[in-house]
């Protein structure tokens, strides 16, 4: 017996359990990439919708989390969505609202991330937040390792500028490590 969408009830229960366990973390990750909570939720919900239509196949292949995350991030940076959201932002007259209750340091981080282009933001989040190696980041974003390393380096420089007061903050000692010396203590309150 199947439900209205042609899936057995057990599959639906599994999916809903998976959703409950993973959605918040996934929205957080995508929020770090987009800097816009509404955009992040929208992209994540669409990714789960796509996952549900091929649930049996995803489960058979292992943990569906990487698949859903990859799809959500691709949706979040798609050009169509960016255009649509630019229009929404125009009518909103200002930056998107922050996540209520977020610590000022983290609000500043989200604001600093907005200064990166979408590809840089995605590379930073995949490598530094999700701890994926550069090669894996390249594979998931359809880029080369060289391009990913270049994006990470530029992103660190830009973040360093926006997350520290001092213009003399030293750049990375090696090509792939973070550049900021003490970003936490240097971050000014967002308000």
């Amino acid at each position: 017996m199947t439900d209205s969408q042609g899936q057995p009830p057990d599959a639906r229960r599994d999916f809903e359990r998976f959703y409950a366990a993973s959605v918040k973390r996934l929205v957080t990750v995508v929020y770090a990439v987009t800097g816009d909570l509404g955009e992040a939720e929208d992209a994540v919900q669409d990714a789960y919708a796509k996952a549900w239509t091929r649930w049996e196949q995803l489960v058979a292949e292992g943990d569906p989390t990487p698949w859903v995350r990859t799809v959500a991030l691709r949706l979040a940076v798609s050009s169509w969505r960016r255009t649509r959201n630019r229009i929404r932002a125009h009518f909103r007259h200002g930056p998107p609202p922050d996540l209520p209750g977020l610590a000022p340091d983290h609000v500043a981080l989200v604001a600093a991330l907005r200064h990166l282009n979408p590809e840089q933001r995605r590379a930073v989040v995949l490598h530094h937040l999700l701890d994926l190696p550069v090669e894996e980041v390249a594979r998931q974003t359809g880029s080369t390792s060289t391009a990913v390393r270049s994006r990470l380096m530029r992103a660190r420089r830009i973040l360093s500028t926006h997350l520290t007061d001092s213009p003399d903050t030293p750049t990375a000692r090696t090509g792939h490590t973070a550049t900021t010396a003490q970003p936490r203590q240097e971050v000014l309150p967002h308000e």
Binding site: A32, D105, L109, L129, A178, T180
Partner: peptide
């Protein structure tokens, strides 16, 4: 540091 910052944020 950046990684730490991002993990704390998440």
């Amino acid at each position: 540091d950046l990684g730490t910052l991002l993990h704390d944020f998440a």
